[in-house]
Nucleic acid binder design. Structure first.
Lengths: 211, 211
DNA sequence: CTATCGGTGGCACTGGGTGTCAAGTAGTGC
DNA sequence: GCACTACTTGACACCCAGTGCCACCGATAG
Protein backbone atom coordinates (compact mmCIF):
# COMPACT_ATOMS: atom_id res chain seq x y z
CA UNK A 1 0.00 0.00 0.00
CA UNK A 2 1.37 3.40 -0.94
CA UNK A 3 1.21 6.41 1.30
CA UNK A 4 -0.70 9.46 0.13
CA UNK A 5 2.23 11.81 0.75
CA UNK A 6 4.96 10.07 -1.24
CA UNK A 7 6.33 11.21 -4.58
CA UNK A 8 4.98 8.36 -6.65
CA UNK A 9 3.84 8.89 -10.21
CA UNK A 10 0.22 8.71 -9.19
CA UNK A 11 0.74 11.34 -6.53
CA UNK A 12 2.46 13.71 -8.94
CA UNK A 13 -0.38 13.23 -11.40
CA UNK A 14 -2.84 14.13 -8.68
CA UNK A 15 -0.84 17.27 -7.92
CA UNK A 16 -0.88 18.17 -11.60
CA UNK A 17 -4.66 17.92 -11.77
CA UNK A 18 -5.05 19.94 -8.58
CA UNK A 19 -2.76 22.67 -9.89
CA UNK A 20 -4.63 22.80 -13.18
CA UNK A 21 -7.96 23.21 -11.41
CA UNK A 22 -6.55 25.76 -8.98
CA UNK A 23 -4.99 27.88 -11.74
CA UNK A 24 -8.15 27.88 -13.81
CA UNK A 25 -10.24 28.73 -10.76
CA UNK A 26 -8.02 31.56 -9.52
CA UNK A 27 -7.78 33.10 -12.96
CA UNK A 28 -11.53 33.16 -13.46
CA UNK A 29 -12.47 34.11 -9.91
CA UNK A 30 -9.93 36.93 -9.67
CA UNK A 31 -10.98 38.49 -12.96
CA UNK A 32 -14.75 38.05 -12.96
CA UNK A 33 -15.51 38.01 -9.23
CA UNK A 34 -16.34 35.15 -6.92
CA UNK A 35 -20.09 34.79 -7.34
CA UNK A 36 -20.11 35.47 -11.07
CA UNK A 37 -18.14 32.28 -11.74
CA UNK A 38 -19.77 28.87 -11.37
CA UNK A 39 -17.97 25.61 -10.79
CA UNK A 40 -19.09 24.64 -14.28
CA UNK A 41 -17.15 27.60 -15.65
CA UNK A 42 -14.04 26.52 -13.76
CA UNK A 43 -14.10 22.89 -14.85
CA UNK A 44 -14.86 23.93 -18.41
CA UNK A 45 -11.74 26.13 -18.38
CA UNK A 46 -9.69 23.31 -16.86
CA UNK A 47 -11.12 20.70 -19.24
CA UNK A 48 -12.39 18.40 -16.50
CA UNK A 49 -15.66 17.28 -15.07
CA UNK A 50 -17.57 18.96 -12.31
CA UNK A 51 -17.33 15.82 -10.20
CA UNK A 52 -13.54 15.84 -10.35
CA UNK A 53 -13.37 19.37 -9.00
CA UNK A 54 -15.10 18.33 -5.79
CA UNK A 55 -12.74 15.40 -5.40
CA UNK A 56 -9.84 17.86 -5.08
CA UNK A 57 -11.51 20.80 -3.33
CA UNK A 58 -14.18 20.65 -0.68
CA UNK A 59 -15.96 23.73 -1.98
CA UNK A 60 -15.64 26.66 -4.34
CA UNK A 61 -14.29 28.66 -1.43
CA UNK A 62 -11.76 25.98 -0.57
CA UNK A 63 -9.76 26.37 -3.76
CA UNK A 64 -9.15 30.03 -2.99
CA UNK A 65 -8.57 29.85 0.75
CA UNK A 66 -6.29 26.83 0.55
CA UNK A 67 -4.03 28.65 -1.87
CA UNK A 68 -3.06 30.95 0.99
CA UNK A 69 -3.65 28.57 3.87
CA UNK A 70 -1.27 25.93 2.54
CA UNK A 71 1.62 28.39 2.59
CA UNK A 72 0.62 29.50 6.07
CA UNK A 73 0.53 26.13 7.77
CA UNK A 74 4.16 26.42 8.84
CA UNK A 75 3.59 29.26 11.29
CA UNK A 76 3.00 26.83 14.14
CA UNK A 77 6.17 24.85 13.57
CA UNK A 78 8.10 28.11 13.23
CA UNK A 79 6.75 29.33 16.55
CA UNK A 80 7.72 26.05 18.20
CA UNK A 81 11.23 26.44 16.77
CA UNK A 82 11.80 29.90 18.22
CA UNK A 83 14.06 30.09 21.31
CA UNK A 84 12.00 29.76 24.51
CA UNK A 85 13.46 32.88 26.09
CA UNK A 86 12.35 35.07 23.20
CA UNK A 87 9.57 37.55 24.05
CA UNK A 88 6.20 36.46 22.65
CA UNK A 89 5.97 39.46 20.34
CA UNK A 90 9.28 38.61 18.68
CA UNK A 91 8.60 34.89 18.41
CA UNK A 92 5.13 35.50 16.97
CA UNK A 93 6.42 38.10 14.55
CA UNK A 94 8.90 35.60 13.18
CA UNK A 95 6.26 32.88 12.99
CA UNK A 96 3.74 35.05 11.18
CA UNK A 97 6.41 36.23 8.79
CA UNK A 98 6.86 32.73 7.35
CA UNK A 99 3.96 32.84 4.88
CA UNK A 100 4.87 36.35 3.73
CA UNK A 101 8.48 35.31 3.22
CA UNK A 102 7.28 32.31 1.21
CA UNK A 103 5.32 34.67 -1.01
CA UNK A 104 8.28 36.95 -1.55
CA UNK A 105 10.59 34.17 -2.60
CA UNK A 106 9.10 34.25 -6.07
CA UNK A 107 7.91 37.65 -7.32
CA UNK A 108 5.32 36.28 -9.73
CA UNK A 109 3.89 34.03 -7.04
CA UNK A 110 3.83 37.02 -4.73
CA UNK A 111 1.80 39.03 -7.20
CA UNK A 112 -0.80 36.31 -7.54
CA UNK A 113 -0.91 35.91 -3.78
CA UNK A 114 -1.63 39.60 -3.41
CA UNK A 115 -4.49 39.35 -5.91
CA UNK A 116 -5.91 36.38 -4.03
CA UNK A 117 -5.65 38.26 -0.75
CA UNK A 118 -7.61 41.13 -2.30
CA UNK A 119 -10.21 38.68 -3.60
CA UNK A 120 -10.63 37.13 -0.17
CA UNK A 121 -10.84 40.44 1.68
CA UNK A 122 -13.37 41.81 -0.80
CA UNK A 123 -15.62 38.72 -0.95
CA UNK A 124 -17.66 38.20 2.23
CA UNK A 125 -18.08 34.47 1.71
CA UNK A 126 -14.34 34.02 1.19
CA UNK A 127 -13.44 36.32 4.05
CA UNK A 128 -15.62 34.25 6.36
CA UNK A 129 -13.90 31.03 5.31
CA UNK A 130 -10.52 32.68 5.69
CA UNK A 131 -11.33 33.68 9.27
CA UNK A 132 -12.65 30.20 9.92
CA UNK A 133 -9.28 28.83 8.91
CA UNK A 134 -7.55 31.37 11.16
CA UNK A 135 -9.52 30.00 14.10
CA UNK A 136 -7.68 26.71 13.72
CA UNK A 137 -4.33 28.47 13.65
CA UNK A 138 -5.30 30.50 16.68
CA UNK A 139 -6.04 27.34 18.62
CA UNK A 140 -2.73 25.77 17.66
CA UNK A 141 -0.74 28.96 18.30
CA UNK A 142 -2.47 29.30 21.66
CA UNK A 143 -1.50 25.77 22.60
CA UNK A 144 2.12 26.47 21.73
CA UNK A 145 2.11 29.77 23.63
CA UNK A 146 0.58 28.10 26.68
CA UNK A 147 3.28 25.48 26.50
CA UNK A 148 5.97 28.16 26.33
CA UNK A 149 4.73 30.08 29.34
CA UNK A 150 3.54 27.05 31.32
CA UNK A 151 -0.03 28.37 31.35
CA UNK A 152 -3.27 26.43 31.41
CA UNK A 153 -5.05 27.33 28.15
CA UNK A 154 -8.42 26.47 29.72
CA UNK A 155 -8.24 28.91 32.60
CA UNK A 156 -5.89 31.62 31.35
CA UNK A 157 -7.19 33.84 28.54
CA UNK A 158 -3.70 35.01 27.59
CA UNK A 159 -2.61 32.27 25.14
CA UNK A 160 -5.73 32.41 23.00
CA UNK A 161 -5.83 36.19 22.99
CA UNK A 162 -2.12 36.51 22.25
CA UNK A 163 -2.56 34.20 19.28
CA UNK A 164 -5.58 36.24 18.21
CA UNK A 165 -3.58 39.47 18.40
CA UNK A 166 -0.81 38.00 16.27
CA UNK A 167 -3.31 36.94 13.62
CA UNK A 168 -4.89 40.37 13.87
CA UNK A 169 -1.49 41.80 13.01
CA UNK A 170 -1.26 39.50 9.99
CA UNK A 171 -4.74 40.57 8.90
CA UNK A 172 -3.73 44.20 9.17
CA UNK A 173 -0.67 43.65 7.02
CA UNK A 174 -2.70 41.84 4.36
CA UNK A 175 -5.29 44.61 4.45
CA UNK A 176 -2.63 47.22 3.76
CA UNK A 177 -0.75 45.21 1.14
CA UNK A 178 -0.46 47.46 -1.91
CA UNK A 179 0.43 46.45 -5.49
CA UNK A 180 3.94 47.87 -5.58
CA UNK A 181 5.10 46.70 -2.15
CA UNK A 182 8.40 44.84 -2.00
CA UNK A 183 9.56 42.57 0.80
CA UNK A 184 11.04 45.42 2.81
CA UNK A 185 7.83 47.42 2.77
CA UNK A 186 5.93 44.31 3.84
CA UNK A 187 8.37 43.93 6.73
CA UNK A 188 7.72 47.53 7.75
CA UNK A 189 3.98 46.96 7.77
CA UNK A 190 4.55 43.87 9.88
CA UNK A 191 6.70 45.81 12.34
CA UNK A 192 4.12 48.57 12.63
CA UNK A 193 1.35 46.08 13.29
CA UNK A 194 3.33 44.20 15.91
CA UNK A 195 4.38 47.47 17.53
CA UNK A 196 0.70 48.02 18.33
CA UNK A 197 0.10 44.65 19.98
CA UNK A 198 3.54 44.13 21.50
CA UNK A 199 2.73 45.93 24.79
CA UNK A 200 -0.03 43.39 25.40
CA UNK A 201 1.91 40.39 24.11
CA UNK A 202 4.95 41.09 26.29
CA UNK A 203 3.15 42.44 29.36
CA UNK A 204 4.03 40.63 32.59
CA UNK A 205 1.45 38.08 33.70
CA UNK A 206 -1.63 39.89 35.01
CA UNK A 207 -2.97 39.10 38.45
CA UNK A 208 -5.71 36.47 38.11
CA UNK A 209 -8.18 38.46 40.24
CA UNK A 210 -8.04 41.64 38.20
CA UNK A 211 -11.80 42.20 38.51
CA UNK B 1 -45.52 55.96 1.86
CA UNK B 2 -44.89 54.50 5.29
CA UNK B 3 -41.43 54.07 6.74
CA UNK B 4 -40.19 50.56 7.42
CA UNK B 5 -39.14 51.37 10.98
CA UNK B 6 -42.39 52.81 12.34
CA UNK B 7 -44.72 51.03 14.74
CA UNK B 8 -47.67 50.67 12.41
CA UNK B 9 -49.92 47.66 12.57
CA UNK B 10 -48.37 46.18 9.44
CA UNK B 11 -44.92 46.54 10.91
CA UNK B 12 -45.92 44.82 14.12
CA UNK B 13 -47.44 42.00 12.11
CA UNK B 14 -44.18 41.63 10.25
CA UNK B 15 -42.32 41.48 13.53
CA UNK B 16 -44.68 38.78 14.74
CA UNK B 17 -43.99 36.61 11.72
CA UNK B 18 -40.24 37.15 12.06
CA UNK B 19 -40.33 36.18 15.73
CA UNK B 20 -42.33 33.05 14.97
CA UNK B 21 -39.83 31.95 12.33
CA UNK B 22 -36.86 32.80 14.54
CA UNK B 23 -38.23 30.89 17.53
CA UNK B 24 -39.01 27.82 15.48
CA UNK B 25 -35.59 27.97 13.83
CA UNK B 26 -33.59 28.43 17.04
CA UNK B 27 -35.48 25.66 18.81
CA UNK B 28 -34.84 23.17 16.04
CA UNK B 29 -31.28 24.22 15.26
CA UNK B 30 -30.15 24.26 18.88
CA UNK B 31 -31.58 20.84 19.65
CA UNK B 32 -30.84 18.89 16.47
CA UNK B 33 -27.73 20.70 15.19
CA UNK B 34 -27.32 23.19 12.38
CA UNK B 35 -26.89 20.97 9.35
CA UNK B 36 -29.40 18.35 10.43
CA UNK B 37 -32.24 20.85 10.13
CA UNK B 38 -33.46 22.01 6.72
CA UNK B 39 -35.31 25.21 5.99
CA UNK B 40 -38.29 23.02 5.16
CA UNK B 41 -38.21 21.68 8.71
CA UNK B 42 -38.18 25.21 10.10
CA UNK B 43 -41.06 26.52 8.02
CA UNK B 44 -43.06 23.37 8.71
CA UNK B 45 -42.63 23.98 12.45
CA UNK B 46 -43.59 27.63 12.02
CA UNK B 47 -46.52 26.82 9.74
CA UNK B 48 -45.35 28.99 6.88
CA UNK B 49 -44.00 28.59 3.40
CA UNK B 50 -40.38 28.22 2.48
CA UNK B 51 -40.53 31.37 0.38
CA UNK B 52 -41.69 33.44 3.34
CA UNK B 53 -38.68 32.39 5.40
CA UNK B 54 -36.30 33.88 2.87
CA UNK B 55 -38.32 37.10 2.81
CA UNK B 56 -37.45 37.61 6.47
CA UNK B 57 -33.97 36.07 6.67
CA UNK B 58 -31.24 36.22 4.07
CA UNK B 59 -30.05 32.69 4.81
CA UNK B 60 -30.32 29.87 7.27
CA UNK B 61 -27.24 31.27 9.00
CA UNK B 62 -28.78 34.72 9.15
CA UNK B 63 -31.58 33.74 11.49
CA UNK B 64 -29.05 32.52 14.06
CA UNK B 65 -26.40 35.19 13.73
CA UNK B 66 -28.89 38.07 13.68
CA UNK B 67 -30.33 36.90 16.98
CA UNK B 68 -27.05 37.92 18.60
CA UNK B 69 -26.02 40.62 16.17
CA UNK B 70 -29.19 42.66 16.65
CA UNK B 71 -28.51 43.00 20.34
CA UNK B 72 -24.90 43.89 19.60
CA UNK B 73 -25.52 46.71 17.16
CA UNK B 74 -25.50 49.30 19.92
CA UNK B 75 -21.83 48.89 20.76
CA UNK B 76 -20.86 51.60 18.28
CA UNK B 77 -23.29 54.18 19.62
CA UNK B 78 -22.19 53.31 23.14
CA UNK B 79 -18.55 53.87 22.22
CA UNK B 80 -19.43 57.21 20.66
CA UNK B 81 -21.24 58.17 23.86
CA UNK B 82 -18.28 57.51 26.14
CA UNK B 83 -16.37 60.58 27.38
CA UNK B 84 -13.54 61.50 24.98
CA UNK B 85 -10.90 61.61 27.71
CA UNK B 86 -11.59 58.02 28.75
CA UNK B 87 -8.77 55.57 27.96
CA UNK B 88 -9.57 53.36 24.96
CA UNK B 89 -9.56 50.21 27.06
CA UNK B 90 -12.22 51.59 29.41
CA UNK B 91 -14.40 53.04 26.67
CA UNK B 92 -14.24 49.84 24.65
CA UNK B 93 -14.94 47.68 27.69
CA UNK B 94 -18.11 49.65 28.34
CA UNK B 95 -19.13 49.50 24.68
CA UNK B 96 -18.61 45.75 24.41
CA UNK B 97 -20.50 45.21 27.64
CA UNK B 98 -23.73 46.50 26.12
CA UNK B 99 -24.82 43.26 24.40
CA UNK B 100 -23.93 41.19 27.47
CA UNK B 101 -25.88 43.52 29.72
CA UNK B 102 -28.85 43.26 27.35
CA UNK B 103 -28.70 39.50 27.69
CA UNK B 104 -28.59 39.65 31.47
CA UNK B 105 -31.62 41.88 31.72
CA UNK B 106 -33.88 38.87 31.22
CA UNK B 107 -32.59 35.56 32.60
CA UNK B 108 -34.57 33.35 30.23
CA UNK B 109 -33.37 35.39 27.27
CA UNK B 110 -29.86 35.12 28.63
CA UNK B 111 -30.08 31.34 28.75
CA UNK B 112 -31.22 31.13 25.14
CA UNK B 113 -28.49 33.57 24.12
CA UNK B 114 -25.90 31.33 25.76
CA UNK B 115 -27.23 28.32 23.87
CA UNK B 116 -27.08 30.25 20.60
CA UNK B 117 -23.52 31.34 21.36
CA UNK B 118 -22.57 27.69 21.86
CA UNK B 119 -24.31 26.76 18.62
CA UNK B 120 -22.40 29.45 16.73
CA UNK B 121 -19.01 28.61 18.23
CA UNK B 122 -19.49 24.89 17.60
CA UNK B 123 -20.77 25.21 14.01
CA UNK B 124 -18.04 26.25 11.57
CA UNK B 125 -20.45 27.75 9.06
CA UNK B 126 -22.11 29.84 11.75
CA UNK B 127 -18.81 30.81 13.33
CA UNK B 128 -17.60 32.08 9.99
CA UNK B 129 -20.72 34.20 9.50
CA UNK B 130 -20.40 35.49 13.02
CA UNK B 131 -16.84 36.64 12.40
CA UNK B 132 -17.95 38.17 9.13
CA UNK B 133 -20.46 40.24 11.05
CA UNK B 134 -17.76 41.23 13.52
CA UNK B 135 -15.73 42.67 10.65
CA UNK B 136 -18.42 45.28 10.11
CA UNK B 137 -18.36 46.20 13.78
CA UNK B 138 -14.57 46.36 13.68
CA UNK B 139 -14.69 48.83 10.81
CA UNK B 140 -17.23 51.02 12.58
CA UNK B 141 -15.43 50.81 15.91
CA UNK B 142 -12.17 51.65 14.14
CA UNK B 143 -13.74 54.71 12.56
CA UNK B 144 -14.97 55.89 15.94
CA UNK B 145 -11.60 55.24 17.58
CA UNK B 146 -9.80 57.10 14.81
CA UNK B 147 -12.17 59.98 15.30
CA UNK B 148 -11.46 59.99 19.03
CA UNK B 149 -7.70 60.07 18.68
CA UNK B 150 -7.62 62.22 15.54
CA UNK B 151 -5.89 59.45 13.60
CA UNK B 152 -6.10 58.66 9.92
CA UNK B 153 -7.62 55.16 9.71
CA UNK B 154 -6.02 54.62 6.30
CA UNK B 155 -2.42 55.15 7.37
CA UNK B 156 -2.45 54.29 11.08
CA UNK B 157 -2.98 50.62 11.97
CA UNK B 158 -3.96 51.44 15.54
CA UNK B 159 -7.73 52.06 15.18
CA UNK B 160 -8.47 48.88 13.28
CA UNK B 161 -6.26 46.77 15.51
CA UNK B 162 -7.65 48.29 18.70
CA UNK B 163 -11.17 47.48 17.51
CA UNK B 164 -10.01 43.98 16.63
CA UNK B 165 -8.53 43.49 20.09
CA UNK B 166 -11.76 44.60 21.73
CA UNK B 167 -13.76 42.13 19.67
CA UNK B 168 -11.16 39.51 20.51
CA UNK B 169 -11.92 40.15 24.15
CA UNK B 170 -15.64 39.72 23.50
CA UNK B 171 -14.96 36.47 21.67
CA UNK B 172 -12.90 35.23 24.61
CA UNK B 173 -15.72 35.97 27.03
CA UNK B 174 -18.28 34.19 24.86
CA UNK B 175 -15.93 31.23 24.54
CA UNK B 176 -15.67 30.93 28.30
CA UNK B 177 -19.36 31.52 29.00
CA UNK B 178 -20.50 28.61 31.18
CA UNK B 179 -24.11 27.53 31.90
CA UNK B 180 -24.29 28.74 35.48
CA UNK B 181 -22.59 32.11 35.04
CA UNK B 182 -24.41 35.13 36.43
CA UNK B 183 -23.84 38.73 35.42
CA UNK B 184 -21.03 39.23 37.91
CA UNK B 185 -19.06 36.26 36.65
CA UNK B 186 -19.53 37.52 33.10
CA UNK B 187 -18.15 40.89 34.21
CA UNK B 188 -15.12 39.16 35.70
CA UNK B 189 -14.43 37.32 32.47
CA UNK B 190 -14.74 40.61 30.63
CA UNK B 191 -12.27 42.28 33.00
CA UNK B 192 -9.79 39.46 32.64
CA UNK B 193 -9.97 39.63 28.86
CA UNK B 194 -9.56 43.38 28.75
CA UNK B 195 -6.70 43.20 31.23
CA UNK B 196 -4.77 41.27 28.59
CA UNK B 197 -5.28 43.75 25.76
CA UNK B 198 -5.31 46.95 27.82
CA UNK B 199 -1.52 47.50 27.66
CA UNK B 200 -1.79 47.66 23.88
CA UNK B 201 -5.03 49.64 23.79
CA UNK B 202 -3.75 52.34 26.13
CA UNK B 203 -0.13 52.45 24.98
CA UNK B 204 1.08 55.91 23.96
CA UNK B 205 1.09 56.54 20.23
CA UNK B 206 3.97 54.65 18.63
CA UNK B 207 6.46 56.43 16.42
CA UNK B 208 5.33 56.13 12.77
CA UNK B 209 8.75 54.91 11.61
CA UNK B 210 8.99 51.98 13.98
CA UNK B 211 10.61 49.75 11.35
C1' DC C 1 -4.97 -12.57 -20.30
C1' DT C 2 -7.26 -11.35 -16.16
C1' DA C 3 -8.07 -9.38 -11.56
C1' DT C 4 -7.51 -5.36 -9.21
C1' DC C 5 -6.97 -0.59 -8.00
C1' DG C 6 -7.11 4.43 -8.42
C1' DG C 7 -8.95 8.06 -11.02
C1' DT C 8 -12.63 9.86 -13.90
C1' DG C 9 -17.16 11.24 -15.80
C1' DG C 10 -22.12 10.93 -15.98
C1' DC C 11 -26.27 11.12 -13.56
C1' DA C 12 -29.63 11.59 -10.25
C1' DC C 13 -30.64 13.75 -5.97
C1' DT C 14 -30.76 16.92 -1.82
C1' DG C 15 -30.80 21.49 -0.17
C1' DG C 16 -30.03 26.59 -0.13
C1' DG C 17 -31.56 30.61 -2.35
C1' DT C 18 -34.09 33.65 -6.08
C1' DG C 19 -37.49 35.40 -9.61
C1' DT C 20 -42.09 35.51 -10.88
C1' DC C 21 -46.86 35.43 -10.71
C1' DA C 22 -51.58 34.64 -9.02
C1' DA C 23 -54.33 35.10 -5.04
C1' DG C 24 -55.68 36.99 -0.55
C1' DT C 25 -56.15 40.90 2.67
C1' DA C 26 -56.46 45.26 4.37
C1' DG C 27 -57.36 50.42 3.71
C1' DT C 28 -59.33 54.22 0.89
C1' DG C 29 -62.39 56.82 -1.96
C1' DC C 30 -66.87 56.74 -4.40
C1' DG D 1 -71.72 47.66 -2.44
C1' DC D 2 -67.64 48.53 -5.79
C1' DA D 3 -63.17 49.70 -7.63
C1' DC D 4 -58.37 50.93 -6.71
C1' DT D 5 -54.09 50.45 -4.31
C1' DA D 6 -50.51 48.62 -1.33
C1' DC D 7 -48.74 44.76 0.91
C1' DT D 8 -48.10 40.02 2.00
C1' DT D 9 -48.27 35.20 1.02
C1' DG D 10 -47.73 30.67 -1.26
C1' DA D 11 -46.82 27.98 -5.23
C1' DC D 12 -43.98 26.94 -8.99
C1' DA D 13 -39.94 26.99 -11.72
C1' DC D 14 -35.32 27.71 -11.73
C1' DC D 15 -30.08 28.10 -10.65
C1' DC D 16 -26.22 26.44 -8.35
C1' DA D 17 -23.38 24.05 -4.69
C1' DG D 18 -22.36 19.70 -3.12
C1' DT D 19 -22.93 14.30 -2.57
C1' DG D 20 -23.75 9.29 -3.59
C1' DC D 21 -23.60 5.95 -6.85
C1' DC D 22 -22.11 3.40 -10.71
C1' DA D 23 -19.95 2.39 -15.01
C1' DC D 24 -15.72 3.04 -17.46
C1' DC D 25 -10.76 3.35 -18.41
C1' DG D 26 -5.82 2.81 -17.85
C1' DA D 27 -2.01 0.95 -15.35
C1' DT D 28 -0.05 -2.62 -12.79
C1' DA D 29 0.49 -7.28 -10.60
C1' DG D 30 -0.24 -12.19 -10.89
Amino acid sequence: MRSRADNSLAERKRQLVADELRDAALMLLATKGFDLVTVDDIVAAAGMSRRTFFRYFASKEDVVVRFLADTSADIITELAARPPAEPPSVALRHALWVPLAACNDHPEHSERARVVVRLILDTPALHARWLERQIEWRTELAAELANRRRLDPHTDPYPRMAAGMALLALDTVLQRWQPGDDEQHLAELMDQAFAVVAPALDAPAASPAAG
